[in-house]
Design a binder for these strands. Structure first.
Lengths: 342, 342
DNA sequence: AAGATATGCTAAATGGATTTAGCATAAGAC
DNA sequence: GTCTTATGCTAAATCCATTTAGCATATCTT
């Protein structure tokens, strides 16, 4: 167990072991084209490198090349909460595929920590920066000009930037279409967004979700039994709105929920009235969080494609596609058991 | 907006600007004791550094010092699922406090990827390695001997290692004590662990949770109305067991659930019978996942202290406390609304 | 046989920060 | 006035991998 001070194997060690120069070793190990080193020497160097377990020192390589093969992920709460954890999966997978590692930092929601975190990343010379957000607000990030290639995921900045967002432009239409497939005549909308109209740019995703939803509802012949605006999108508020709705009159054929947590509250209120989603009425939701599959019956939901968004951000970064453009990622409908069969 | 190629500011630039040597700049900026540089020179260098926005190049520092001020976190699923995300919070917070950054990699549950990930981290010369696990199994990790200081969080290896685990040795006692406080005479245990006896080392945490629970129940005068062994700890199984229990006979005064997901199923089954946790009976659970607060009423649960575990791992690493010891972190009881008042 | 090409390889510079040994000059000792 | 000590600072080595320019020797031309 030579676990202690396993002396670093450097390129010089490999050179000595193979009887070649350091230059030759570097050339060979990096498969440089146009070098005229003999096959025999190549073999010897490769063997020696393997024998000694040589791994080039990343710091030395970075120093020389100015590249670190490292991406920085700074998030407000992403790594730290369960909501958007898929974003990390996507980033990690895509980065690994392209031979990059990921450095993470959190601002824990404190805006002033963002600049500090970015400086940290700049200091560590990351090749690119991903700014990941829990909710897709537009904000005034005051990103310090570090010259680092940067992509925002699930958020926008006041100044133009490369951003990846869920495609909410048609998510509402998709929801309404799915509801129509069940043969429903009436719908309720639980969790309409307060600021949708007065504050049209702050929450691009949410605004679009509801705009798209309302447009589609208008075009359809569906009777809209109400829009319940909620303080917060949580189970308690979803429960209260639904309980209210059910005392007011007969239940709708379908309920569209702002997100899965709201849907959870909706389920609780329905259960109290003996109403079973998927049988007595349809419930459709957005986000596809983990609780969607915990609910009974399991909840059909239109997914926030965090994983794909994360992966796309990495690709944009590494391919240098950094025009100040909003990239949209499709939101798939995850079919489960809460929609009535026709 | 000189966003483009903001030429790196090096120590040489600061030296030139302040009319001193690079050596002097380094000495001053690092507050080296015992140097005899004049106060005036010190001032000039500091000013120049600030003026130019100098940040030392991390790669160069690493190359020189052999330290990277970087910690590696390799997890099976931690970063990527919501369950243990608190672990990252703890690690990030503690690392940042001590001036370290965190590099992450995932094995996505594939054991063969572990060795590769560790090599990656070794190549990047991290100062320490944290191996984080979703479930606290003991496994044969075959950790390659890289000489890196390593701490396991929420898991054990076949060979001795420094590990951080939740203190489940008394979590069961705490649960029983809390149940007794409600004046309960009878309990049901939903989600007993199948392998607890025949496989005592594989799941240290879970085994301990149940051993501790059974010991405490035995010592108490509580009537145990049954132990339901579940295939899997999910809402569906928790629901089924509870439904079964309720048809079999009168409901217990208290239900102890193996975890919050089980409790969610328990709540569903209770609701169907018109039984309200916290009023008609007590429900106590383990883990304190996010859904504990989504349930109605909110669930009292004994928390898996991921955040503290992550932070402790960082401290052990940076303080060099690397004896092959199991460190236990207390599990706090998070009081909510599912326990009856006496 | 002399000059031109090709072949196989290496010396040395480079990137940026840190650290050690030691050079000047000034101040103090006697 | 010489010798010692203190003061203020710097040259140069070091960490390791990469890359460019170019040195030998061998092979080919005519």
């Amino acid at each position: 167990m030579n676990t202690q001070k396993a002396k670093r194997v450097t390129i010089a060690d490999v050179a000595e072991a193979s009887g070649m120069s350091r230059a030759a070793v570097s050339l060979i190990l990096n498969n440089k084209p146009g070098t005229r080193l003999s096959a025999e020497a190549t073999e010897r160097v490769r063997a020696a490198a393997k024998e000694l377990g040589y791994r080039p020192n990343a710091a030395a390589q970075s120093l020389r090349s100015g590249k670190t093969r490292t991406l920085g992920l700074i998030s407000d709460q992403v790594t730290v909460t369960r909501f958007a954890s898929g974003m990390i999966t996507g980033i990690l997978r895509a980065a690994e595929e392209r031979g990059h590692t990921v450095l993470i930092a959190e601002t824990f929601g404190k805006p002033d920590q963002l600049a500090e975190a970015i400086q940290q990343m700049a200091h560590r010379d990351v090749d690119g920066l991903i700014l990941g957000f829990m909710d897709s607000r537009k904000r005034d990030l005051k990103i310090p000009a570090t010259g680092l290639p940067t992509v925002l995921v699930n958020g926008l900045d006041d100044s133009p930037c490369t951003a990846v967002l869920p495609n909410e432009l048609d998510s509402g239409a998709r929801a309404v279409h799915r509801v129509l497939e069940t043969g429903a005549k009436s719908v309720a909308l639980i969790g309409a967004h307060q600021n949708a109209e007065n504050n049209p740019v702050s929450y691009p995703s949410i605004t679009r979700r509801f705009t798209s939803l309302r447009n589609a509802l208008q075009e359809s012949k569906l009777e809209v039994l109400g829009e319940w605006v909620l303080e917060d999108w949580n189970p308690t508020d979803g429960y209260a709105a639904t309980a209210q709705m059910l005392t007011d009159g007969h239940p709708p054929d379908a309920v569209i929920c702002a997100n899965d947590r709201v849907a959870m509250g909706v389920f609780q209120a329905l259960a109290e009235q003996g109403l079973v989603p998927g049988k007595d009425l349809s419930v459709l939701s957005f986000d596809d969080e983990i609780i969607a599959s915990y609910l009974r019956p399991q909840l059909t939901s239109i997914r926030l494609p965090y994983e794909e968004m994360g992966a796309l951000a990495v690709e944009l970064l590494l391919d240098g596609k950094l025009d100040p453009v909003e990239h949209q990622v499709e939101m798939p409908l995850i079919e489960r058991d809460s929609m009535k069969a026709r």
